[in-house]
């Protein structure tokens, strides 16, 4: 799929081209949003909103960055907006975080009934890992999802999140240590 050609066609109003672009991105995008929001329905809503935003603004896309960078910037911001709204309205349990992440996290399992997508979890380790990622701060979760799930390189992550390369390194490092801290009691499941 020649993305540049598709985008040119979309700018002329070609809906078939837009449909193809959506098809190429939708699964990974929904999974990104799912990892961020830990809710499948919210993930689809967020992804839909992101696609409609880029569609609306497609004429302004100048191809200085890749479409992927642009799209995930929009999607990431949509997810963060949802998370901010959630934290304003919901009762949240704070997780102690300090500069030294060692020993400061506890694994907190959600006590809500498992949703339909939890049926996809193959084993206990995956479920614990998924829960642990959900426990991370928004910043740390973003790093883990972008690097370890979506496979973006450090430079791309810096562009998408709008921070420096040094900040990406620092955040990702702390994010991985935070996961380690949450899961260390269940270490035996990961050897």
């Amino acid at each position: 799929m020649d993305e540049a050609k598709l985008i040119k066609r979309i700018k002329t109003g070609d809906m078939d081209a837009f449909s193809q672009l959506v098809g190429a991105y939708e699964k990974k995008a929904i999974n990104y949003a799912y990892r961020m929001l830990n809710d499948a329905s919210d993930a689809e809503d967020a992804t839909q909103e992101a696609f409609l935003k880029v569609f609306d603004k497609i004429d302004t896309f100048r191809e200085k960055s890749t479409f992927s960078t642009w799209f995930y910037t929009v999607l990431n911001n949509v997810c963060l907006d949802i998370l901010r709204k959630r934290s304003r309205t919901a009762d949240t349990v704070s997780i102690n975080q300090t500069a030294n992440d060692d020993d400061e996290y506890e694994l907190q399992l959600e006590d809500s009934a498992p949703g339909p997508y939890e049926q996809l979890q193959k084993n206990e380790a995956q479920r614990l890992l998924q829960d642990a990622i959900a426990q991370l701060s928004n910043e740390h979760r973003t790093m883990i999802i972008m690097r370890d799930i979506n496979g973006f390189d450090y430079e791309e992550i810096a562009k998408i999140t709008g921070v420096s390369l040094g900040t990406v390194k620092s955040r990702l490092s702390r994010a991985r240590l935070a996961l380690r801290s949450i899961l260390k009691e269940n270490r035996e499941l990961f050897t």
């Binding site: 939708e26 699964k27 929904i30 999974n31 799912y34 990892r35 499948a40 993930a43 689809e44 997508y117 996809l120 979890q121 193959k122 380790a125 995956q126 890992l129 998924q130 990622i133 883990i144 370890d148 799930i149 496979g151 996961l179 990961f190």
Partner: peptide, 10 residues
């Protein structure tokens, strides 16, 4: 293991 987490379907 994070890389191998199951994907949800659209």
């Amino acid at each position: 293991e994070t890389k191998k987490l199951n994907e949800i379907e659209v």
